[in-house]
Simulated assay, not measured.
Amino acid sequence: MTSPLYVRLTTEQAGRLDRAAAAVPAHKKDLIGGLVDRYVDPSTPAGVDALRELATAKRVTVELGGDAPVVGHAEFRPAAPAEVLDAAGAAELLAVDEAALRELAEAGGLPGRQIGGQWRFSRQALLDWLAGT
C-alpha cells in the first residue's frame, strides 16, 4: 500500500533528484522511498535525534516586521491604485482605446481636465461617470 506525499524542495534539491532519477534510472518516488527506508528511524532515541537535527538545520525564519519572527508565512499587500490617471491609465481603467478616450474627453463627455496639454482624470470621477451617478 502507498500513500501520497507532496513536498516542496528547493530548486537545487529538485534538480539533484531529477538528475539522480535519470542517472540510475529510477522513479523519483522509489529513490525517496529508499532514502526513507535507509535513513529515517523514529523508533530509537538516536534516530529521533538525527531527524530532529535535520529538521532544525533546514528551518528558514523570516522577519516580517511584526513582534516575532514568522516561519512559513508570506503576505502580499498590493499598492493602492492611483487617484489621478493620465489618458493611458484612464483608457485602461475603462477598457477602451486611448484615442477613443481622448476624443470623448475633448468633446466634454468625460470628467477630466487638461493640464499643460495633457489629460488628467480622477479615478473615482470616472467610476462614478461609468456607473451613471
Rank of each mutant, 00 (worst) to 15 (best):
L110K: 01
L35T: 12
P42C: 07
D97I: 05
I32W: 03
F121Q: 00
E92Y: 06
D41T: 05
I32D: 01
L9S: 02
D67W: 10
W129A: 09
R102P: 10
V7Q: 01
R8E: 14
E12F: 13
R8M: 12
A79I: 06
R120Q: 09
F76S: 05
H73W: 13
Q118A: 12
D49W: 11
E75P: 04
G132N: 06
G33W: 05
K29A: 15
L126R: 02
D18S: 12
A50M: 05
A100I: 11
G108H: 07
W129V: 05
L110R: 03
P4Y: 05
V60S: 10
G15S: 11
E103S: 14
G33Q: 05
D67I: 08
A23Q: 09
D37N: 14
L17S: 00
P69L: 09
Y39F: 15
L85W: 00
A80S: 12
A55D: 10
L51D: 01
A107M: 12
A87Y: 04
A100G: 10
G108E: 11
L54Y: 10
V24R: 04
H27S: 07
R19N: 09
A50K: 00
G66L: 13
G112L: 01
T56G: 09
D41Y: 07
S122P: 01
G109N: 09
V7Y: 03
R120V: 09
V84A: 00
P42T: 07
L9Y: 06
G15Y: 13
G132T: 04
